[in-house]
Structure formats: structure tokens, C-alpha cells
Lab assay of single mutants.
Amino acid sequence: MAAGGDHGSPDSYRSPLASRYASPEMCFVFSDRYKFRTWRQLWLWLAEAEQTLGLPITDEQIQEMKSNLENIDFKMAAEEEKRLRHDVMAHVHTFGHCCPKAAGIIHLGATSCYVGDNTDLIILRNALDLLLPKLARVISRLADFAKERASLPTLGFTHFQPAQLTTVGKRCCLWIQDLCMDLQNLKRVRDDLRFRGVKGTTGTQASFLQLFEGDDHKVEQLDKMVTEKAGFKRAFIITGQTYTRKVDIEVLSVLASLGASVHKICTDIRLLANLKEMEEPFEKQQIGSSAMPYKRNPMRSERCCSLARHLMTLVMDPLQTASVQWFERTLDDSANRRICLAEAFLTADTILNTLQNISEGLVVYPKVIERRIRQELPFMATENIIMAMVKAGGSRQDCHEKIRVLSQQAASVVKQEGGDNDLIERIQVDAYFSPIHSQLDHLLDPSSFTGRASQQVQRFLEEEVYPLLKPYESVMKVKAELCL
């Protein structure tokens, strides 16, 4: 049975990233139509530049190519590739079939990587351009969430054990800070992308030097003109047959890092959902379990974690691919890159769409948070109580021993009897502590235990987050809708 299948058929496997999760716009960027249309555009740009620099290419040939950029006979191309065992030459023939007058000058002087690699770089750039505003929107939604809850005390956790208090907004800023680093890295790697350009079979530009009869300047002009037509500021000066596969490492490393950030955020949300302090959106008709109707599973956060793990592992592909590119190139890269580049971007696209949807509907339960604080705060307040007693004339050592005994009794009630923490009640009825009984409410005010959390939130948002989001103001209103 021949390899390949009808990918629109229910009898043929289709990647869930495309069929179930990723956005239509990201799927289109990695589609065959987008790819092969870009090949034709690159052939047109090459012909236009070659004509401008004096090669015998007519206006009629150029116009014929322009008129057929979208006229792609995919069936013919597939048949040609089956016959020739070469995808680029299959599309040269297919393009030439609908451009008979231009057929002889299509791909003039070029090698397969002229269309293959340059198209990949265009796709990487455009895919990054799709991700950047999506990530900015996630940051914006979380920034709104953090600002609104900047002063809401909550129990902090280290080692997932109760620690000092923080605020809900401050905790959210930990998430935002990681995503801001990801946004900066995505922008950097996007701006650092260079075009492969017009380089020939081993990167020496020998074929173009021959076409222009040894004119170095025209060869350099050709490279520059096509690079500018493709919208790049610069091209690699040095290439082998391909652009260095280190570029793929750079791009997928940034995406993998984004995956790590999203995994951490969504894990926190899942843990908070278990504590009943916070939940992701839950639709009115949504079913959490087929057997347990009360369940409210954090399905979206779980999906993000599941896909983020996949995204983090994909960076190993370009690392290994770059390491086995012998001399000017081997074909070890080809099949692998067809999979890992598309999957990385479709996965990143999915987790950003999902995280935006989550961040637009996060639900906080202040009463649950308050109750958990009441359970733990008495123990945390013991040092403040000791200091207040010393100020009232008591002995630190005597007070410490009193607190120690009462704390152990209260802990026994919590752990052995399943009761509430009654340390404060014990202190309130103990005559030894009568000098500070009137101060206990103040000493137990949760806001006095959150330090500068709310001020940190305000400063972080104003100095770091809002300036970073400013270039994306025009796209901030787009909502994230999930079908599944």
C-alpha cells in the first residue's frame, strides 16, 4: 500500500493539533497551500530580480507567473513527485505547466533550498508574528487579574506546605514575570531571523556568478533584492546548502521555554482548584465526569500541561538535527523538520489560546482563602504575639514557653481530632496574655502579614508589564474561544 493518505478522510490519521486544537490561522501558515504558494512567490521574486539585473526574462513571463501564483494543481504535483521522487522539481514542473512561456526560467540558477529553506524562514517569521500578540493578550488578562487582587491576602506555599502570606495578585505576578520573559525572547528570536537568500547549491553562489558572467556586484544585488522582497532586513552571508540548523534550535528553545512557563502556571491553577481557592472557567453544560456528576475538573489547565510537556520535548529534535548536518548538509534534517517545526508552533498556539481562555474567566473564592488563612495564621502570628507581650512588660522566655504549650495543644486538636485551630481562643482565655487581649485582632490582621506584596504588584505592572504590552494595544480586544 502506498504511503500517505487522504487526510480529510475519517479513515486516515490526522494530527489532533490540526484537527482538534490549533487555530485556523496557525494551521494555514503550515498548510501545503501556504507552503507551495510561497515557493511560487519566491520563484517570481527571483525572476523579477534577475530581470532587473539584466537576464533575458520578459515582462510577459513575469506576468504569467504572477497570474498563476494561486493556480496550484495539487493532484498534478503529487503525481509528479511520485514520478520524480523530488518535491521541488515536482512543483517546478507543475508551475511550468500553467506558465508555459515562463517554464524555462522558473528556478533559474537556484537549488531546492532556495524555495525550501527560504519558505521555512518566512513561515517561522509569520508563525512567530501570530504567537506574539496571543502571548501579549494572556499577559494582559493576567495583569488585569493581578491588579484587581493585588491586596487580597492568601496563604503562600513553599514545598506545598503553608508559608508566609502573600497576595493573590502577587502570586499571579510570578506567572506574568515568566511570560514577559517569554514574550521578550519570542520577539528577540523573531527579529534575529535572517533570510537564507540566493546562495546556490553549497552556499557559494557559483551558479549565479556564472549567470551574471562573473559580476560579483550583481550577485550581491540579486541576494539583497530577493531578501528585501521577502520582507527581511538581512540575509546570511555564510550558508551551506541550507541555512544553519542552529536557527531551528533557537526558535524551538524559546517555544519550549514558553511551554515550561505555561505548565507551571496551569499546575498552580490545578492545585488551587483542589484547594477550592480558584477555578478555571466551567461552562453551564460542561460535564466533569461521566460517573461523578459533582466533579469540576480543571480540564483546560490539564490540557495545557499535557501539550506543554510535548512542546518542551520537541527542542531535542533540532538539537540532534543540527549535530548531524555533515559538511554542507545531509538530508537527516528533512523529514524531522517537516514534523517538529509545525508541531512546535501548533502546540504553542494551542496552549496560548487555551491559557487566554482560562485567564479571561478565572474565578476566585475569597471566603475559602480566608478560612485557610484562619487555619494557619495563628501559628504564624506567634512571633508577633511574643513581641507584643514583651512590649507590655512580659518575659520573652516565659511567653515563648506559654505559646509553645498552647500551640501544641491547638495542633493536637487540628491533627488528632480534625478540629479547627483554636490557638487564639486559648490565648484569649489565658490570664497571662490579658495585657494584649485587646491587640489580638490587630495582630491577626492578614494584611499585616503580606509585606509589600501589593506595592510590588503595582510597581511591576507599571514599570515592566504595561510598557512591554504597549506595541500590542491594537490587538488586545480579541477574545479566545474554545470549541473543545
Rank of each mutant, 00 (worst) to 15 (best):
I176F: 02
G197F: 00
G451A: 10
I122N: 00
F195N: 00
C304T: 11
C399L: 05
Q51F: 05
L222D: 07
A90D: 02
D398V: 12
P100S: 10
L444C: 09
G203A: 00
R171F: 03
H86Q: 06
V138L: 13
K246M: 02
L443K: 04
Q375W: 02
N126K: 11
S31A: 08
V363W: 03
R20S: 00
E60A: 10
D216I: 06
S323K: 05
N118C: 10
C113Q: 11
I176T: 08
S301Y: 03
I62F: 05
L271S: 05
N71Q: 12
F30S: 02
V168H: 10
R14I: 15
F157E: 03
L222H: 03
W175P: 03
I385P: 03
D192I: 07
C399D: 05
A3I: 14
N118S: 03
E383L: 02
A136S: 14
M316N: 10
I57H: 07
K82F: 11
K284F: 13
S290I: 02
Q177D: 03
E220L: 09
Q456W: 02
L484H: 15
K415E: 08
S151V: 09
Y21H: 00
K218E: 05
S9V: 13
F74C: 14
G419F: 08
R245W: 02
W39G: 03
E279Y: 05
K199L: 00
L84S: 05
G240V: 02
M89S: 06
V254T: 12
H263R: 04
F449M: 07
T158Q: 00
S253I: 10
G169I: 00
C180W: 02
I385R: 02
P162N: 05
E360V: 00
S253W: 07
R270F: 01
T111Q: 01
P471C: 14
Q205Y: 00
S474G: 15
D223V: 00
S19V: 04
Y294K: 03
R196G: 08
P435C: 09
S140P: 01
S448Q: 14
D215T: 06
W326C: 06
L331M: 07
H310G: 07
S306W: 02
E343A: 10
H217F: 11
E343S: 09
R194D: 03
I369Y: 02
A146S: 10
V247Q: 13
R296L: 07
L482W: 05
R329E: 03
L130S: 12
I238K: 04
F145G: 05
P24Y: 10
S434C: 06
E383V: 02
R270P: 08
Q455M: 09
I237M: 10
C99M: 03
A348D: 01
N297E: 01
L108N: 06
W326A: 06
